[in-house]
Design a protein around this nucleic acid. Sequence first.
DNA 1: GGACCTATTTATAATTG
DNA 2: TCAATTATAAATAGGTC
Lengths: 185, 185
Amino acid sequence: MSTRLIKGRKNIHLAKIENQNNRQVTFSKRRNGVFKKANELAVMSGAEVGIIVCPQGSKPYSFGHPNVNDTINKYIGEERSPSPSSPGIDDKYVLMFRKANSKELNTGLNSLQDQLDFALKLKSKLKQMNKNVKSQQEWFKGPIEKMNYTEASMLKEGLEDLLLKVKNYGTERGYGYENGKWKAE
Amino acid sequence: MSTRLIKGRKNIHLAKIENQNNRQVTFSKRRNGVFKKANELAVMSGAEVGIIVCPQGSKPYSFGHPNVNDTINKYIGEERSPSPSSPGIDDKYVLMFRKANSKELNTGLNSLQDQLDFALKLKSKLKQMNKNVKSQQEWFKGPIEKMNYTEASMLKEGLEDLLLKVKNYGTERGYGYENGKWKAE
DNA sequence: GGACCTATTTATAATTG
DNA sequence: TCAATTATAAATAGGTC
């Protein structure tokens, strides 16, 4: 009674919950939360939404507005005949999916290319601030400190790979993008 | 300023937004929100999640952890086994997708998606810090082929520096990837 | 169209019954 | 196990630039 009880929400890490009971409770709560959000999205924006959740060792849960199967069919139909229009940034998931299904998936390649683009922007900034070495340091420090550990670790993997390519660029003549792969020109 | 500005969130009615612009904005924001929540659900509970969103008159958006196809297939498999016919889903599509997914297509897709997620975040952060650089657009458009040696070297050094900071960031707080699992705290 | 801001509303982790 | 509680963390509607 004298002890201060803390019942409020704690901040969470994006990681699998080890404790089985907590994991089950969180699964149930958050599944409902996702379904609720999806329903709001569907109603408010007028879009069709279908969700499938498959817990390990149990039967799938599903949500659909107005209907899961129709939504899946629309998606499958769309995947069968990709439209030629160029994807925006929000279509990246779909694009990646298509790449995977065209059996041309090279692990990390897409994200590497993206990161390369971002690195080019970094470079741009470096060039702008070229007269000030300190500023360069600050530039790299800035975004990192705002990352969580998951983001940072992911970036680490990608950068190690990217760094190899960039180093090769310096010694070889460069890289082109051909048949889904980076290659020296 | 004589007028008191009200910027805070208003409570919402669960109804379709009539104003087209507002509807589009809300669609974009909330779609991201649902995908984020779904990702958290998948990671924290270890479940597979697939989401398909079909806006009216536009191509579908999708989210999957680890990927949409497998999740759909699991759902279809579940749905089909109890009853001989699965309403709304054609057999040929089922077969096609099962075939497409029977290989190593899953390998790397998860990390790809994660990295893509990260890349988008990184891009956003870089954009924030780059907002006052006007020549940014040109750099972003230009492919790596247009880099000269000096530029590539600058990029290389920058990346090495960045990589170092990322590595340090990962170890300073004891976060890391252990035994195939993310360790929290 | 996108990034940012802020007042609020929501979601929810931990706890209790 | 499940529902209710409550303190916080997150999401977000409406606005600005």
